[in-house]
Design a binder for these strands. Structure first.
Lengths: 168, 168
DNA sequence: TATTGTTATACTCTATAACTATA
DNA sequence: TATAGTTATAGAGTATAACAATA
């Protein structure tokens, strides 16, 4: 995203455009009453910072999700990751392959299902994931700086009630 | 997406795979502590239903956003829409052109800036937008059925505090 | 027959460069 | 020089169809 607004009015304001409807302000009244609109804006705002900080580890957001899930679910299969993350199988293949080439994860034959492969972190993967999770935890504090700890917990709880309707 | 969890543990637990992680359930413990993850899941859940209902009017989510913004900001320019919606100018061109071809919006010369075009709804656009906004309002009730009215207001307020940090 | 993982491929969304006409 | 709108195009993300190996 093109960092929406880096200067909110800048020191030297553009006084040469007087009567125009206002250079920037658009009434978003109705959209702001919608949960979907606000949830999307908020997720984009947080994920934008998330992407920047994960770039340090050469990880995209979905890469981080995969590593974190494999870390806490050793032996998890690709299919399980697809269901959990909402990624289609063909689109996970290259992603996992790239993480394997970087020596972060390992694909071992599944103990009970000859078709499947169990995913495991390598020592390097364990280390990187631990660092990345720490960065993510710190990001939480920064990205939600306008919220109190209680508000943050409330926000997460309400969000889960929205998307966990059918699932849970 | 593909209804994440239809059976959470099933009646007859799979005792034949003792040490294996369990056939379906993946521990998303860490991810669920992140605002970004939860906000994205929630927005996807709501927007999925949003897309279905807007399909009735042959509108995508961004089309609805454009119509709603033009409705409440007659004469708004494309550039203003781009800033407000986070869409890049080249990607808005075809979108506006399509709405114009459908006879929903009109592009009139801007009164004070010869380069710009002011966007206005046609009578047909006014009617369709009113219907679509009513559908969106109803969707709010349905999509957040698990929330009380107070919770919904709290959720929106907290979401806005997250993404309005830098912008406002 | 159904499912895991895979390839190939198409479609959509998003991003960049460059041009025009106005300011 | 800078900005609004536009064109063309590149890239990322997401989707379907079909196949081999295994259940």
């Amino acid at each position: 995203m093109p960092s929406p607004r880096t200067s909110k009015k800048t020191a030297v304001a553009t006084l040469d455009t007087p009567a125009t409807p206002a250079p920037e302000s658009v009434d978003t009244g109705f959209l702001r009453t919608l949960v979907g609109y606000n949830a999307r804006r908020a997720s984009l705002a947080v994920i934008e910072v998330f992407m920047e900080r994960m770039a340090v580890y050469r990880l995209k957001v979905v890469d981080f999700s995969v590593l974190s899930l494999v870390a806490h679910n050793p032996g998890v299969t690709s299919r399980q990751l697809c269901v959990t993350l909402g990624v289609l199988p063909p689109n996970l293949v290259g992603l996992v392959a790239a993480l394997e080439r970087r020596g972060l994860i390992e694909r071992r034959p599944h103990p009970s299902d000859g078709r499947a492969m169990g995913l495991h972190l390598t020592p390097a993967g364990v280390e990187l994931t631990a660092q990345a999770e720490q960065t993510a935890a710190q990001l939480e504090v920064d990205a939600t700086a306008g919220l109190t700890a209680t508000e943050r917990k409330t926000l997460i709880r309400l969000l889960q009630k929205v998307y966990a309707r059918d699932g849970a």
